[in-house]
Design a protein around this nucleic acid. Sequence first.
DNA 1: AATGAATGAGCCTTCATTCAT
DNA 2: TATGAATGAAGGCTCATTCAT
Lengths: 204, 204, 204, 204
Amino acid sequence: MTGQVLVMESARSSRRKPESLARLKAAARKLFVERGYDATRPQDIAKEAGLGHGTFYLHYPDKRACFLAFIAEARRELDDHIQSRRLQGAGLEQNIAAALTAIGDYAENHPGVMRAAFTDERMIDAEGAPSRSLLAEWGEQWADTVRGVAKTSAISASYDPDIVGQAIAGALLQAGREAHRSPLAREALVKNLTAFISRALKPA
Amino acid sequence: MTGQVLVMESARSSRRKPESLARLKAAARKLFVERGYDATRPQDIAKEAGLGHGTFYLHYPDKRACFLAFIAEARRELDDHIQSRRLQGAGLEQNIAAALTAIGDYAENHPGVMRAAFTDERMIDAEGAPSRSLLAEWGEQWADTVRGVAKTSAISASYDPDIVGQAIAGALLQAGREAHRSPLAREALVKNLTAFISRALKPA
Amino acid sequence: MTGQVLVMESARSSRRKPESLARLKAAARKLFVERGYDATRPQDIAKEAGLGHGTFYLHYPDKRACFLAFIAEARRELDDHIQSRRLQGAGLEQNIAAALTAIGDYAENHPGVMRAAFTDERMIDAEGAPSRSLLAEWGEQWADTVRGVAKTSAISASYDPDIVGQAIAGALLQAGREAHRSPLAREALVKNLTAFISRALKPA
Amino acid sequence: MTGQVLVMESARSSRRKPESLARLKAAARKLFVERGYDATRPQDIAKEAGLGHGTFYLHYPDKRACFLAFIAEARRELDDHIQSRRLQGAGLEQNIAAALTAIGDYAENHPGVMRAAFTDERMIDAEGAPSRSLLAEWGEQWADTVRGVAKTSAISASYDPDIVGQAIAGALLQAGREAHRSPLAREALVKNLTAFISRALKPA
DNA sequence: AATGAATGAGCCTTCATTCAT
DNA sequence: TATGAATGAAGGCTCATTCAT
């Protein structure tokens, strides 16, 4: 054990502060996803990062701040992932298909992170940011999309984009969640939802 | 607080177990809704119920059991509420409208309880029931409804009812949630979603 | 369940106070022996006796008093048992054999009670009786026996009866304990100890 | 108390884990001996050691483990003490005298520790070691001694060494205990028991 | 910057005892 | 006499955070 410690020592001492933060971030993400907020102690995170407990407080003022940072990053990452697949200027159907595929990909490659990213903000705020739910944000984005398409009059004029946007976001997430659980083909998911939403929006 | 205690004095001196349980239930519901699971201590619940904290353990083996009971009851209640408004034999549109109205009513009259009823089951299981998410259950019910309507051929045959059912449940919940937040007219919500879903389902 | 309660009700209501005490005694003995002092709650005793918890305090001022009564009775019983086998006027060897047999019998028929009867009195006193250890009392009794035999000059005069009495008591108990554990023949135990002690005492 | 704290201040500020453990050990020993297991709280031990109660759990997983460690150390210490006084190759009489003296010394210098070392193992096991009673172990050692001496034919061949070994151990302990209580001369104790046991063993 | 021993507020739970019925 | 719901002091233990090194 002493040997092992010594070996790491040299490697560790060469690390600068940013490296420690990166390690803490990764460790926090891993543990928050695996065990949830309450079951994860700052000590655990530091240990997982190969650092002393005290170091945690050199980088985060407290546990909550660490969790908040994790959530924010997860949301950013998920969002980036989805945005990057968005086909600019494409039709609604293609947009839906792209979003669904992106969500599915992400969930598959980052198991557990989505659940965390959607964590009830009640745990978070407590005088922090108002912290809109990620799903609500998605809803707003879809509302914008709907508004955009509406201008081309490809959409029934009687819809309220805000309501419909939230409905689309909710439909995508929940259908995606359950599709992931059951061995439903991803393809079927995309096909069904694309049809569902585009028909719903088309003018009568 | 003293006043409250005095008022209850006569009730407490009767020492009826069922009444204590009822008061604990109400207190637990109030606090779990207001503060969430972790921030609510058995002591707080007992105090809120005007009882000593030992009494809590006369009725529940531990804190988790109390929370589970609360969740189960909240779900039952919400479900009853919605079922009771369901128009048997009515068309899809009426069903959607009825469900939305019921959800809205409930959320308005029992603020915070819905959030609790949808609590992430991760906190719950721990060897208990597999505990399907309530939303997923709703999705299944909508899947059944879709299947039922499909027989009358009022629905496009190409849909997978399971997928579509979940999508509908997700759409209703999320749209309902946000409508509740913003001062959107309930009426607009019902109108929009009814149109949205029924159009989505109609055969091409 | 109601039926069962009713059936017991009539049987129970015919009981008078003394009967309740007897039932509590028996229940206390059973549980103290099986679980020890700390792991036995007054509630458990009352339940085992088929009585309500409150009834316990009609018969004992508190838990400790109940335990003390149990210990006292166990000691009395054990002592009676041994005394009743004592051969009055018999020689030392016969006395030893009788005592050993009696101890062995008792331990076999009342498993666990001996351990309790020898319970460290530290748990007990706390301003109660000085409560001499039972073993020390036995030692004194053997001291008396030794003194008695000494008068007939069948014993080396150089012994201090108090010391030797305690030694005999200790030897008998410990040898008896271990003999009981291993499958050593009781007969061998009696034979060995009888020889051991009587030789030890005989004049040189 | 303030004074004590000041005195320790310098020692405490060094924050050396081993020292804290040593102080906890000493404190635990003191309190377990003085008050017994149940009346000693981890908090008390920590306070006695001049430490916060959290520190207790840095060194022991729980209260029981601390007690077990204490018992084990006390037994080891007592055993070492006695073994170190054992006269290798000496005759039986000298062995007995040495053992008695050692027990007496120890009991005098470590009041209360012997009682603890002989604590009923019922409190201990609970899935731990089978935890043979220390007295039974002593009995076995005396059985070995008896067997050894028997080879030189200085002992009656009709004895079962196991039985006789336990008897000797029991006799020594109980006689020692009571001698310690009453103001009997230690010398008398040694003289009496040495004579008692050696006569008992000599061939007829 | 990094460490990890130390801290103590605070949590969940138990149980001997009381008392209105 | 008997009951059992109610009580709250007390206990064991955890964990976010501090701070001397």
